[in-house]
Nucleic acid binder design. Structure first.
Length: 181
DNA sequence: AACCCGCCCAACT
DNA sequence: AGTTGGGCGGGTT
């Protein structure tokens, strides 16, 4: 449960619609705390956030560099999220390792769970990698949708929208690259 | 410490 | 196209 007292910081939230559904961010002064993406209804997203947060948090306008990038990414642009400040404080060392490795997968390309496990020095940890990615607090920004199964199937996707959204994002990235060739 | 689960994988059938 | 056993981190009791 997300709690301002535990984090010892103020948390604010913003909601905004995109072409892949309603998105939202939770932010502290340390940076991005949570990112939600792909909700069909604004209220679904609101309920989800309300269920994850243990205190009253302040709503702020959906502006700023990160939100801007998310909006541009969702509209099919080739966006780099490099330089986005994120609050990693609630994540285990293993999860941080997995997510930071995932961050290096370039726009428009994919990697398998097994290969990612190998690159972080955990050769038989594919399933553990999947577990860590399932709890990715920053979908889109950390492109967990670019990690697929070894047999070519998409695998799972726990962010709003599920595997449908995962496929849509991959397709969107392919299309964007083809256009700019 | 034991137990269970999960965005998996390779090697089978 | 299913099934099986292995493998791993993390949460729960």
């Amino acid at each position: 449960m997300i709690n301002e007292k535990r984090y010892r910081v103020l948390i604010t939230y913003s909601l905004f619609p995109t072409s892949i559904g309603w998105c939202g961010v939770l932010t502290t002064q340390r940076g991005l705390l949570r990112l939600y993406a792909g909700y069909a209804e604004r209220n679904q997203l609101l309920n989800h956030i309300a269920g994850a947060v243990d205190s009253h948090i302040k709503k702020v306008p959906a502006t700023g560099i990160v939100i801007d990038k998310i909006k541009r990414y969702c509209s099919g642009k080739h966006v780099s999220f490099e330089g986005c400040k994120m609050d990693w404080s609630s994540l285990s060392p293993f999860q941080q390792k997995v997510l930071k490795a995932a961050l290096k997968i370039p726009y428009g390309s994919v990697e398998t769970y097994g290969n990612l496990a190998r690159t972080i020095g955990c050769p038989h940890g594919s399933r553990a990698v999947g577990n860590a990615l399932a709890k990715n607090p920053f979908p889109l920004v950390i492109p967990c949708h670019r990690i697929i199964r070894g047999d070519g199937k998409p695998g799972g996707f726990s962010a709003g929208g599920g595997v449908m959204l995962k496929n849509k994002l991959l397709q969107m990235e392919q299309l964007s690259l083809q256009k700019n060739r």
